[in-house]
Nucleic acid binder design. Sequence first.
DNA 1: TGGGGTTAT
DNA 2: ATAACCC
Length: 439
Amino acid sequence: HSKCASARGAVGRVIVHVDLDCFYAQVEMIRNPELRDKPLGVQQKSIVVTCNYEARRLGVKKLMSVKDAKEKCPQLILVNGEDLTPYREMSYKVTELLGEFCPLVERLGFDENFVDITEIVEQRLNQLQQSGRSRVCVSGHVYNNQALNWRDTTHVRLVIGSQVAEEFREALSARLGLTGCAGVASNKLLAKLVSGTFKPNQQTVLLPESCRDLMRSLDGIQKVPGIGYKTTKRLEALGVESMCDLQVFPPATLEKELGASVAQRLQKLSYGEDDSPVTPSGPPQSFSDEDSFKKCSSEVEVKEKIEELLPKLLDRIHKDGRQPRTVRLTIRQFSPTDRWFNRESRQCPLPPHLLQRLGKESSNDLSPLVDLLMKLFRKMIDVDLPFHLTLLSVCFSNLKDLPSSKQGSIGFYLKQVSPPAGSGKRGREVEDASRAEGT
DNA sequence: TGGGGTTAT
DNA sequence: ATAACCC
């Protein structure tokens, strides 16, 4: 079948982008249903990072300060969302659910997934042709309200894609109680851009003839995923502000400014072209935990912060079952201007014996690890001089599978091959299995 | 402005 | 190790 897929590669893929609505707020509403019909914000430090649609109706926006949000909406209920555990867990349930339909699922953050459903669509198209039908119903919106041409198999395939997307959303709702948007198109860029066109809990399919319109509808190059803050500044300095500017800009000049690979990729993006594959994310490549604060200025405080971060992290690593071979400490030093840029980090190999016992029963001696992290800290900061930190982060990476004899649960890939999208039980089995084996 | 993540150089 | 990107 993979032969079919690559031979037919030129015909075009069918990609779905799934984007959950105000994800953290949804998770909080599931955790506490009394919050359902009230304006709800999720708070991290002094920021409302996201809020439900009731709160949005009353003027609250994402990433608004708590102060502004309360002014706009005094009845706003706030829950603390600094511990990402509930969101992370629900996020992986979403990815796993999509993985039951098809193995090609790529995560983007906690609340978005790309799914390459080319093969599913191909199967359904064959069934359809054998049954002698030529028409299928489109699910959700068609971008621009473009008319369908049933003789165009690209149209038909995308319409079948819209039905699959509808099934994704139906499964997310029925099994996890989550709502979200979906976009269906021939590549990741377009699927992502089109998924946001009808906003809560709706879906949209893009037909190729409307690609130009979709790209032209973007106001400013920064709306293109892949063109971030830095690149936007550099492009603006070249006089590039709109999508059209970027499309017609001399490629040679662009390559000199951004390097050939970035320049070529971005210019293709400006035309709505994106050949990047949907790369299955699988289990995470790293585990990190961070905390930000107003001020931390002594070695003792640093050590205390690290000792706060470690237990939760080690617990996560233990549950994952793999062993990290690298540990990293990241700091942010105070700077009145430019609070975003000034992160520094030091990393080192993690001696296997150090991590060996650490996950086991949670109350172990953390001090060798803490000492190691303090050494990393001293590589960045001369502790004899005054310092002022505003963030500390610990990250474990370079994860290696344990020899299969002594393995915990590896939820992710195991489940991909097991259950067909059935009706019965789920989740609980996996949790129990991991505990049973872990002890 | 949080608390995460990824890939490229 | 950093810099860029994503949410």
